[in-house]
Design a protein around this nucleic acid. Structure first.
Lengths: 130, 130
DNA sequence: TACTAGTGCAACCAAATGGTTGCAGATCAC
DNA sequence: GTGATCTGCAACCATTTGGTTGCACTAGTA
């Protein structure tokens, strides 16, 4: 049952389609979900812009692996690159983090107002407890 | 050559090992990276706790698919479930979102201080531009 | 010029992910 | 009791992901 009308809609079944406008958050949170990538962001922030080869020297990973991570981060808008000569230097552009915080605060806000509503309605229950 | 000493370390090559202490952020951001899951969180917040079957009725997905998403969210600490009779009811526990915001703010903080440092050193460059 | 260092691209692989179906086990209502 | 619902597994499948290797290309440098 459950699957209300899935058979009726001939959707291409590709789950990569995304929900359009939410796609930015997808790639953003997705980019942040990998420890290597968070590490790269932190490293680029603390030690400044660097190339993929230089970044790869400090990890057990290949340059290509690092490159892929950098591209994921760039696709999420967290990085930008510029080339000087034969080198390609990556730097952090943390603006997209604002949308992440935005979604989280929005959500937490709904939670807060919900707690508030519950408190107002029933004064006996602690609402969350943990 | 990059790959400094990968051949020397006989690491089990399983990428699921995680970086231990950062694992919480992994699962957290990972859980948030899916639009369906964010939708579930929002729905559970706005309309209150619900069972997997009920949640599945409003989406084109199977109950099992929803179930898996709920389990991912629960593993990230964003959900908790309690059963009453034969029903299992899920509710949001948004506390872990704090760690996410924490990491982001830390990172943004490093960025701010770095801009500050740059501004103090060279007064001519706009530092970010975009 | 020839050599070296850095990047770009493509093929390939294993594991994780998101989804399905089918069925067994509880629990409620009659 | 019987039947209808709801949950819980398990198997299975296709796509994505994270990683590797190998090689071609480009840009500095001796």
């Amino acid at each position: 049952m459950s699957r209300t009308s899935s058979k009726a809609t001939p959707q291409p079944k590709s789950r990569a389609t995304g929900k359009a406008d939410g796609g930015a958050l997808d790639t953003l949170f997705g980019a942040l979900s990998d420890p290597t990538r968070r590490l790269l962001v932190e490293r680029l922030l603390t030690k400044g812009p660097a190339t993929a080869t230089v970044l790869a020297e400090t990890t057990p990973l290949t340059r290509q692996a690092i490159l892929k991570h950098l591209q994921v981060l760039e696709a999420a808008g967290l990085l930008a690159h510029e080339r000087s000569g034969r080198e390609v230097r990556y730097r952090v552009t943390p603006q997209p983090l604002a949308s992440a915080v935005g979604w989280i605060l929005d959500t937490a806000g709904q939670w807060d107002s919900r707690i508030d509503r519950l408190r107002r309605l029933s004064n006996s229950e602690p609402a969350t407890k943990r």
